[in-house]
Design a protein around this nucleic acid. Structure first.
Lengths: 132, 132
DNA sequence: ATAAAAACAGTAATCATTACTATTTTCAAA
DNA sequence: TTTGAAAATAGTAATGATTACTGTTTTTAT
């Protein structure tokens, strides 16, 4: 519906996000894209992140830490969030779309999908606790 | 560790939340508790919601709409979020703790739990679309 | 009773995000 | 190739949820 026009800024944002697998926040993206375009504004970053996710080119993650994270990998996969350091890590596991039907069983409405985040302690933070 | 002292305000907040199954936000709780205590401040509501959830007496829900929701039902259960009206509804389905082990299979770290929200259109919004 | 810890009301501050505005860029059609 | 309307931009102001601060009041163990 909305005619999308080319923008170098949007391209830079997408390009940067594709190089990262740590699911950065808008501000981290902003700080990094500024290396390529020092004049870009934070509002432009936010607006383009929204446009890209509306277009399905990226995903917005609400991991529960108060700030959104972004992911250029739109293939179905799950995320782990470390409750100590806050890092967001891709999980290698099969999709569990079957839980949608489990949820729909006793529900009077239409269930279209789900979002699942796993929480715990990441490898690095676990090791920090080890007292050998 | 932190010695908790009685507070009438905290009691009112918990009591109100227990009467509701629609998972209200802090501001909705504030507006309602003011009927019982017109002097209560919004900061007190926020602080006590945090204390109550730290104590495991209530749960904080991050449904992805930008504002936290609260639930006095701490028994394990899942939630549905209507993408049209934003309502948050309890789901009657078995716990699927088994997905934790699926997530842990290829992950080098400790997975302690997960949070899952189901999205779609609620009964009410679905009916609004029906053109009979 | 008393006093230290906890909680309070009221308000200011913070943080992420969105909205606004005047200017610049894109791009399809002339 | 111009041209002009739509889209996008930079910069800044505003918003909304939440947290922090401060002087006062409550709680509660002694």
């Amino acid at each position: 519906m909305t005619a999308r026009k080319y923008s170098r800024q949007r391209e830079l944002i997408k390009e940067f996000l594709m190089t990262r697998k740590d699911h950065p926040t808008a501000d981290v993206i902003y700080q990094n894209v500024r290396n390529e375009n020092p004049n870009i504004s934070l509002g432009t970053v936010y607006r383009n992140l929204t446009l890209l996710s509306e277009d399905g080119e990226i995903n917005r993650l609400n991991v529960g830490d108060g700030t959104d994270h972004f992911d250029a990998d739109t293939s179905p996969h799950y995320h782990f969030v470390c409750t100590e350091c806050g890092s967001v890590i891709d999980l290698e596991m099969d999709s569990i779309e079957s839980i949608n039907s489990a949820a729909a069983a006793n529900f009077d409405g239409r269930i279209e999908g789900h979002r699942t985040y796993f929480y715990g302690t990441c490898r690095h933070c676990t090791r920090l606790h080890e007292h050998s």
